[in-house]
Every structure is written in C-alpha cells, then in structure tokens.
Amino acid sequence: MIDLVIETRCRNLGGFEVGRVLPYAKRRMVGPFIFFDRMGPVTFPAGLPRSVDVRPHPHIGISTITYLFEGEIMHRDSLGTEQPIRPGEVNWMTAGRGITHSERFERARREGGRMDGIQAWVALPEADEETDPGFEHVSGAALPVWEDDGVWGRVVAGEAFGLKAGVRTFSPMAYVHLEMQAGRRVAVPEAYTERAAYIASGSVEVGGRRHEAGRMLVFTPRQPVTLAAVEPASVMLVAGEPLGPRFIDWNFVSSSKERIEQAKADWRAGRMKLPDLDNSEFIPLPGEPVPPPNPMS
C-alpha cells in the first residue's frame, strides 16, 4: 500500500528554512513531479532584509507552481509578468526552452507576517521540453472545489475526483489540496500510476499506521489507498504518469545532459533575458563568482 515514506530534509535559505521532499535518493520523481519543497511555516518580521528574496534565476524543461497556505510572494518573469502569489491561487509558470523569474517577499518586508506554502516543479514530456515559455494565473475562486462529510478539496492542477482545473498541463497529472476533519476518510484516486500524499499539517493513518506532518507517503501503483485523518489534517496529493528519467542540475531539468550544459553556458554568458521589472541583480551559477551587475537585459 505504501512503497516509501520520505521524511522532510530541512535546508536553510539564508533567512528561513525549507523542507526538501523531492528529489529523494530512493525516489527522484512521482509522476511528473520532480521537485517538492515546503516553505515555512515561518513568521517574517517587518523590515525583512532583501537577502531573503529569491533573486532572478533561470529554468528550463519544467513547469513550476508555488501554492501558498499563508502569506504573499511577488513573482516577476522575463515575459513581463508581475503577479502577487496569494493563498489558494495557481501561478503556473512553464519554463520550456527557457525563462527567468524572481520571487520577492515584498509584503512581508512592509508589514511582517506568516509565510507557508509548497513549491513544486513538474517535468515536461520530451516532446514539450523546448516549448515556448508561458505563465498562467488562476484565482482560487476559479478552481474546482468540493466538500463532502468533513472533507474539503481543491484541484490545483490536472484532474481528480471528477473535477478538472483550468490550467494547461502537458501530461496526465493531479495536484490536490485536501482539508480533512478528524476521523474523516478519503480514497486516493487510482487513475494514475504514481501517487503520493504530503502531510502538510496534522496526521493521517494509512493501513492502520499513523503518519505525522512533514512526510510524503508514496503509494503502491494501482492498489486502493484510503487516508484517515487522526486529527484535523492538511494534505497535498500528487499523481501522474512517469515520463522517464530526467537530469537535474541547479534550476535546470532535462532529458538531456547536453541540453543542461547548454543552459548553463547560456546563463553564464548572459544569453537568457532577465525580468524587465527586476533586472538589477541575479543568481550566478553555483560555485561561480558573482559577475558585475546586470549583464543581461
């Protein structure tokens, strides 16, 4: 029923901690999901230093989604997008052949406040790895939601529980936010080959065993699985079909090592455009010296 339990590994990003879940040594992906980080929960003070922000950086070969439970992040990208990310919304950025973006904690800097959410990367099928970059914003009110006997659910992306989110995805998948009252149960959809549940808060039982917050439970393919909330619980379901192996190097994901090396060379040489509204600084390749400001435009 459960193939693997992945414990969160904490990493300090220079102002707050994130919990790394995917990739994991024994499980690189679940369906197309190749990266899964918990950001927070953390309480930011007003006057937060700019060093906590995520400066402009590049991606290829994936779509990204930052889904918040609390707080706000300002997203700016090389397509000219400027969009605050707020709780319960979908901000789906497709990197494809290449995009750059920044993530700034501007509201927290002004006002202070809580921050809590998930950042996930979804690998693109090989045929779509070089697709044009894009960005879609979908408000929480426009996402499909249901309630049933103490269980509330929102389909963030893909299709599950008979509902389909409006954002364009490139392969069969599901990304679902569940809120479960104590004692309530949910059957995990069996339509996808690979499935997992991340326990964001509370605790759940599967097959009579209790699992606490911070764990991702990776399920056996095609076997029935039921989640039972031991106490009020928030759970994120991820599911999809395997896409084949992917290489990951820093922020670059591809089925080809050569393509990643090309992306690194492009970033190093200043051939990837920075966000128009945030182009005064950027993150260099890991281990390389910081170059002069703003070589890209």
Rank of each mutant, 00 (worst) to 15 (best):
L217I: 09
G158K: 03
A213L: 02
G208V: 05
F247I: 05
Y198E: 02
G207V: 09
A157L: 02
E212R: 11
P189K: 12
R168Y: 05
A263F: 09
Q223H: 12
E261P: 04
M173H: 05
R185L: 04
P172C: 04
G214H: 07
E212F: 06
A228V: 01
E190Q: 15
N251A: 10
P232M: 05
K264R: 13
G162V: 03
Y192T: 01
A233G: 00
V225L: 07
A213P: 00
P232N: 09
V188M: 03
R268S: 14
R185C: 07
R209E: 11
L243T: 03
T220M: 10
R246Q: 00
L237F: 07
A213D: 01
S203E: 13
T220N: 10
W267L: 08
G183K: 09
A269D: 15
G207H: 02
R259E: 14
G207L: 07
V188S: 04
S171Q: 10
S255E: 12
E194R: 04
V238D: 13
V167D: 03
R222D: 11
M216T: 13
P242S: 08
A228N: 02
A269R: 15
P245H: 02
E205R: 13
Q181K: 13
L217A: 04
H177Q: 12
A191E: 14
T169Y: 09
A160R: 02
L243E: 10
M180K: 00
G270S: 09
F252W: 05
M236R: 03
H177D: 15
G244I: 12
Q223I: 07
E212L: 13
